[in-house]
Simulated assay, not measured.
Amino acid sequence: MVTLAEVAKAAGVSPSTVSYVLSGKRAISEPTRARVEQAISLLGYHPHAGARALAGKRSHIIALVVPLHTDVYVPVMMEIAISVTMAARQFGYDVLLITNDEGPDGVRRVARSGLADGVILMDVQMDDPRIAVLRETGTHSALIGLPRDARGLACVDHDFVRAGRLAAEHLAELGHREVAFIGYPAAVYERHAGYAERTRSGFEEGARQLGLRAVHRPCDGTYESVAGVFTRILADRPGTTGFVVQNEGAIGPLLSLLRAAGRVVPEDASVVALCQEPLAEQFSPRLTAVSGPTRELGTRAVELVMSRLNGDVPDDVTLLTPVLSRRESSGRAPTKVA
């Protein structure tokens, strides 16, 4: 780790001058300040959290821990990251991106180094090991996601339980009785990603209460994977007429496979996707979709961090209400399945 003395040597000044530049407690000439700031940038120096606290300074940086998985849908993750960045700028803050492959150690490093004033976690697991570090270090934080135990945490997320139930209710209202849920890859459920677990539980509970015969199948999202899942569903349950998809990569292949099987959408089979509106509009037929305001997740997360930085630290869980938009891909259940 780069020290203050090394910065001073590179800039050709005393360590105290570097300290004054960082703290702003004493006037420093512009040429000297420029040399110090250049040395800080070149060496990648970050003042220790304790030192910055003594100086009464903040870094004016929020660390955003973004998912680094091949099974996440990148456009949505990028939209959230952009909304975090834009909201942070409204408060005079910049955003430092940290990848979640570092796990709890990465969060601990950021917290102890004083690199950032607050941390926002994405891709939250039901029993996320990073949360223990946030509690241990007392880091000002917000979660874009909802863990199993949210006590003492500030969280914002879509109401995925409600989203899953909305899909089940829609198919039930249309008269479908045998339905299939095509989900994310098995790895997503194995790491207990909250968004996947909660949607599935909402759908399955809704299906039970509504008297639907439902099956859930994980899927990698490739054409071959979707074909395998689709074939097994129809082999096991040939009367399936309703499909719910929470896997952006699986939507196109599913529509193609239904056409190849001679099942016209929506006359012979209905498809409901859990995805954002722009994606739902791209397919033919246009998809009935359950969605929520993605950008609001990032904006609200920044607001929660800023509230905590300003001393307001109550538990705060915000669940954004999903909306079902009906389009051409869903219709009345057929009286006879081909």
Rank of each mutant, 00 (worst) to 15 (best):
A11L: 05
V13G: 02
V13C: 01
Y20N: 02
S23Q: 04
G24P: 13
A27Q: 13
I28S: 02
S29E: 05
A34V: 01
A39I: 10
Y45I: 08
H46N: 07
A49I: 13
K57P: 02
K57V: 04
L64D: 00
V66D: 01
H69N: 07
T70Y: 00
M86W: 02
Q90H: 07
Q90L: 03
F91I: 02
G92V: 14
L96M: 15
E102K: 12
D105L: 12
V119Q: 03
I120K: 02
D123F: 06
D123E: 11
D123P: 00
V124K: 12
P129I: 02
E136A: 13
G138M: 13
A142D: 05
R165G: 07
A168L: 03
E169K: 05
L171H: 11
L174Q: 12
V179H: 08
G183H: 02
V188A: 15
S201L: 14
F203G: 03
F203E: 03
E204D: 13
L210K: 01
A214Q: 07
R217C: 08
D220Q: 04
G221N: 09
V229R: 00
P238A: 10
V244Y: 11
Q246T: 12
G249K: 01
A250K: 07
P253V: 08
L254W: 13
R259W: 12
G262A: 06
R263L: 15
V264C: 14
V264Y: 13
E267P: 01
V271N: 06
V272L: 06
Q276N: 10
E277N: 09
A280H: 02
F283P: 00
R286C: 01
A289S: 14
V290R: 01
T299G: 11
A301V: 13
V305C: 12
M306V: 15
S307I: 02
D315R: 15
D315I: 07
V317E: 14
V317Y: 06
S329V: 00
S330I: 01
K336Q: 14
